[in-house]
Design a protein around this nucleic acid. Structure first.
Length: 287
DNA sequence: CCCACGACCTGTGGGC
DNA sequence: TGCCCACAGGTCGTGG
């Protein structure tokens, strides 16, 4: 599933075709994704103009010129594809290439300009909803979210407070969206490896200088991934259909048995299940 | 409050 | 080739 950098990449891919564009056709091919779609989903969005497309944590926020913001979460396997018309059947009506994966094409948006944005999600862990824009921050999806890791609100002092007296490893706590919003399994593993911090060490016992290093490394790895256009795994493609390449730069994720890349370390990357998720790490230099 | 675990849903890849 | 199991980027609810 897309983590922060992938969602940011999707945002960047969708923004040119959605921002400032009016939705002329909205289709929900099933009544639910992970949760039921609002009953007024199609009605509310049809004819609305998307005034901005932003990201908060792993959510995409498409603010409309009506009262609501369309909130989209990609879950594990959600992705968007943009189709451009191959020709106009007649003015305002367009022709598109056949959908390569109609079985998982759950939501379709078409804009006045002729772009077709299709949401695919085989596992249906993703979800969409309509949230009143004026009170968006109070909505349960957003009210408890921690700071954006790339913002100034996120720093070592804040992590120190969040980690205080906690016995769980930093791996588990960094996945908690209330502590910091937008990290997922891949980038937590990558950041802890860069910072040479053990995923299993009691979080409350990590020193402030090491947390400072961790904050820097979180920002660094996210920044690199965003710059690379987001990572692409099996069932994820960039919003415009092109592929990202950051997955080739993972240093620990899915690299069990390969040599540790940290300078001067002769360790071998290991995998352990921690709180039900795979943790990849170097048992030698991550302490 | 903290923490571990199962559930949600579907697809894929590896081993036999 | 076929079958079965393990596993997958996230989040939520339950129960100790």
């Amino acid at each position: 599933m897309p983590e922060l950098p992938e969602v940011e990449t999707v945002r960047g891919g969708l923004a040119p075709v959605l921002e400032g564009h009016r939705l002329t056709h909205v289709e929900a091919r099933r009544p639910d994704l992970r949760f039921p779609l609002p009953l007024n989903f199609v009605q509310t969005l049809t004819g609305a103009t998307i005034v901005s497309l932003r990201r908060r944590a792993k959510y995409l926020l498409a603010q409309t010129d009506r009262e609501d913001t369309l909130v989209m979460h990609l879950g594990m396997s959600g992705r968007f594809e943009i189709a451009r018309p191959e020709g106009a059947v007649r003015p305002g009506q367009f022709h598109y290439a056949p959908d390569p994966d109609p079985k998982h094409a759950h939501i379709v948006f078409e804009t006045e300009a002729g772009a077709r944005v299709t949401y695919y999600d085989p596992r249906r862990f993703g979800y969409m909803g309509l949230v009143n824009t004026a009170t968006l921050d109070l909505h349960p999806w957003f009210a408890g979210l921690g700071p954006e890791p790339l913002s100034d609100d996120f720093d070592a002092a804040r992590l120190k407070t969040a980690f205080k007296d906690r016995k769980q490893g930093p791996k588990t706590l960094l996945l908690d969206q209330r502590i910091v919003a937008g990290l997922g399994n891949i980038y937590v593993c990558e950041a802890l490896h860069r910072a040479r911090i053990s995923p299993f060490k009691a979080a409350g016992r990590i020193s402030l200088p090491r947390l400072k290093r961790l904050v820097t490394d979180i920002r660094e790895v996210l920044g690199e991934a965003i710059a690379a256009g987001g990572s692409t795994l099996k069932d994820y493609a960039q919003a415009d259909g092109a592929l990202g390449y950051f997955q080739h730069r993972f240093r620990v994720y899915d690299r069990e048995g390969t040599p540790c890349s940290n300078p001067g370390c002769s360790g071998v990357i290991a995998r352990k299940v921690q709180a039900g998720r795979s943790t990849f790490y170097c048992p030698v230099c991550q302490t």
